[in-house]
């Protein structure tokens, strides 16, 4: 049933050793398109972290108290997607009111979080691995922070390598993919240190 892993361990493991982006390669589209700019990366990473934490908690409650008792696990995909969409919608309204500057800098990418596969991915891992509530929230927050960390690292690298001479055919997404590959290899060094399953 519920795995025995300590939520604190799980939290750090999902940031470093099982980074959702660099070991599972989820959430790549916005990762590549936004990492051009450090400031936007910061905002988007923050938004992903908040959305992931909240959706993990809400989805866990829905899963535990609605879907599982009724034996409707086959519907969990649809319900999770609806939950993510609603959370993003609410967050968008709140950010627009609370911090217009952040809202502007996130622009189109905030609504696009709805279809960020890292978020659905994290929720599905949570379901498959049968995490308890605290574990689910720790895993959601950790995965979000891991995603945030990864995009900040990539943005920093890209800002530094911006002016480097790159063969014409590799400019833009090409060299970015290679960079991500190196980053993933570096993170593989952590793998196996903690088993999150």
């Amino acid at each position: 049933m519920t795995p025995l892993i300590n939520p604190v361990t799980l939290f750090f493991a999902s940031i470093f050793t099982s980074n959702i982006l660099l070991t599972n390669f989820l959430g790549m589209c916005s990762f590549i398109s936004i990492s051009k700019d450090w400031k936007s990366s910061f905002g988007l990473g923050m938004a992903v972290t908040v959305v992931m934490t909240i959706t993990a908690a809400v989805s866990w409650l829905v899963l535990e108290y609605v879907i599982a008792p009724l034996g409707l696990e086959y519907l969990s995909f649809i319900v999770f997607i609806v939950v993510i969409a609603a959370v993003v919608q609410i967050l968008e309204m709140v950010i627009d009111r609370a911090s217009p500057a952040l809202y502007m800098s996130l622009g189109i990418f905030l609504p696009l979080i709805t279809v960020n596969c890292a978020i659905l991915g994290a929720i599905l891992f949570m379901q498959i691995r049968r995490y308890g509530f605290i574990q689910a929230v720790a895993f959601g927050a950790g995965s979000g922070l891991g995603w945030w960390l990864a995009i900040l690292l990539l943005a920093a690298i890209r800002e530094r390598t911006e002016k480097n001479p790159v063969p014409a055919g590799l400019k833009g997404p090409g060299i970015t993919m290679i960079t991500i590959g190196f980053m993933a290899m570096a993170f593989i060094g952590f793998s196996g240190m903690i088993a999150v399953q």
């Binding site: 829905v62 009724l70 409707l72 519907l75 319900v79």
Partner: peptide
Amino acid sequence: LGPLVVAGAA
């Protein structure tokens, strides 16, 4: 039940 739950959640 399925549609009801999805509709209810939405």
